[in-house]
Design a protein around this nucleic acid. Structure first.
Lengths: 187, 187
DNA sequence: GTCTATAAAGCGATAGAC
DNA sequence: GTCTATCGCTTTATAGAC
């Protein structure tokens, strides 16, 4: 029997969606209580630091998810080419083919970036580095691998922007398809 | 002798920077009055519709700038390859090698997108289409041209996100360099 | 055209009952 | 752990003097 009492980790997904949709400044407590179904009292019980602590917890959860499902497999996978393809499949699912925005990207563009600069920088740097490592194991020289990895991480973020701007998920899926070819092309 | 009385168009650049740095929700009237040097009275005299009208005016001004300096040259330039290189140079200058964020991209990711969806969609669609036209004139078949144009517009947006996240303008300049090769490579 | 004063609403955060 | 009531501040927008 599931307990009816909420845990901190239970509300992180809902919290993440609010921050994704409204940004840090736009994510009012009113939006948060509405989406999580919890009153302000409960929220401040779980997150005494208020919105800042909520956002930090969401960033940490996202980071953990990518570490497990994206970065680690890239670093340690036996077949590097298959690892790259898996990454693209995970990314397509996570961002729902461009319908879902990247919270870290949204934070990066805003003034909140400075408040969470370590988390924001770490998320993208570790993604780029893990991908470069996989490409290196696939036979590319380090400079080429690093350049292609940077290009891929940036293309995914740009595809999210453009897909939402043009209201067309095709932008995102086409970008991932191009990336698969470009990443795995001979050096 | 310049008149000391402000005109609407005089304050649009300052207004644009406030929206760029803080987003639509974060751009408070307090920020706007501080940056423009105008009181609320003057602001509402120029923009009776408040923040919404200010943002719309800024979007229109940006659109005009890109139409003149980017889209039109791409569509009508004699040398299409030179046109592409000019575009990249204009983009590098406009976004200050990644130090300046794209207001339309910021709006696209936020909930404001719905309020300004026509302007946001038009900005990116016309950029993509003008670039595809130039690439077509350079000898690429229409499908390839359109794919590469979409890829380039998205890469510029992603490069802005990643450059700011990693606090490294090199990300942006490297992305533009890769784009020059990729756009003009043989079909 | 520019300003100050002000209204009305929303904000993040806290206190304290249960 | 969850709630409601409330504080103090900021917000957008308006009114009206100059």
């Amino acid at each position: 029997m599931a307990k009816t009492v909420a845990e901190r980790s239970d509300i992180l997904p809902a919290l993440g969606e609010v921050f994704r949709e409204h940004g840090f400044e736009g994510a009012s407590l009113a939006h948060i209580t509405a989406r999580t179904g919890l009153g302000k009292g409960s929220l401040y019980h779980f997150f005494p630091g208020g919105k800042e602590e909520m956002a930090a917890a969401v960033l940490a959860e996202i980071d953990g998810w990518f570490e497990t499902h994206v970065y680690a497999p890239l670093r340690t996978g036996a077949d590097a080419a298959a690892g790259v393809r898996d990454m693209l499949a995970q990314v397509d699912a996570y961002f729902r083919s461009g319908r879902r925005v990247c919270l870290v990207g949204v934070f990066a563009l805003g003034e909140v970036r400075d408040r969470f600069s370590d988390a924001v920088l770490g998320y993208f740097a570790r993604w780029r580095d893990a991908l470069a490592q996989a490409l290196g194991r696939a036979g590319l020289d380090p400079d080429t691998a690093r350049g292609r990895a940077e290009d891929a991480v940036l293309a995914i973020q740009g595809a999210l922007v453009l897909a939402r701007a043009l209201d067309d998920t095709g932008v995102f899926t086409r970008a991932l398809a191009r990336l698969e070819h470009r990443l795995l092309a001979p050096g």
